[in-house]
Design a protein around this nucleic acid. Structure first.
Lengths: 125, 125
DNA sequence: ATTATATGAAACCAAATGGTTTCGTGTCAA
DNA sequence: TTGACACGAAACCATTTGGTTTCATATAAT
């Protein structure tokens, strides 16, 4: 059993906005540290530390190639997040109030909502 | 427009394990601070501060009733998390490796996996 | 062989975080 | 009215966090 020595948990790893941006950046391309750090307003070393935290959480995989270390997304640990979320879905599943958010944000899970005919309405009390 | 003064964002709010436990606890029942704090190995004041952070993130609603303040889950901001996650789903959607996690964790999104007949198989290379 | 590049490690620092104890105040009960 | 209860605010503290700069080392290029 591998047991990836997860010193940092996923929840903490994604708490930082820089790290979330890193995950997006490394989602489809593999990149070396120097190139990565060009996308951020901080030192290479700082970015490197963020990458280490992501790696500890298993969210990113590093591969040494010559003198550079390339990083890429490893999305598997996000499953834990999804599972955690799924617990709460039963609490909003029937809530009209969520609709508001759907509308405000226009898109959810890649699906865009379109105008409906207000078939469901608040009773007029 | 209400604009809930979100000083703390959702990602940071759920980063702490105590706060995640709080959300679960307050998911179905509304509870006053003192009762809530009995579930945690720390002072009432500490729990109170966690509740404030959750409230600032909009994840919990407080209602004053007499001398007590009752808290309850407000799941709406979790939408943001779900949306964030949805971005990454396209990166694991086709990955066999996720299957491993499904099996290991037995359950995903409230659906339990059952034995299949291995209709899909890895080609034998 | 020498120089330039890519990187991590280390030492350091300010600010945020997660906790404590103490105190003041509003509310309920006798 | 006098207490007991529920709570938040404040002051305080240790540790963690997110950043810096400097230095050492491995690899690549000339």
């Amino acid at each position: 059993m591998p047991a990836p020595s997860q010193k940092h948990d996923v929840f903490q790893a994604i708490a930082d906005p820089t790290r979330r941006q890193l995950l997006r950046l490394l989602a489809d391309k593999e990149m070396p540290v120097t190139i990565i750090s060009r996308h951020f307003p901080m030192s290479r070393t700082a970015v490197s530390k963020h990458l280490r935290i992501l790696a500890n959480a298993g969210l990113v995989k590093e591969q040494k190639v010559g003198r550079e270390t390339r990083y890429r997304l490893q999305p598997e640990p996000l499953i834990e997040l999804k599972q955690w979320l799924s617990f709460f879905e039963r609490f909003w599943a029937n809530k009209l109030s969520m609709l508001k958010h759907y509308v405000e944000n226009e898109e959810i899970d890649g699906l865009k909502l379109v105008e409906s005919k207000h078939e469901e309405q608040e009773p007029k009390e």
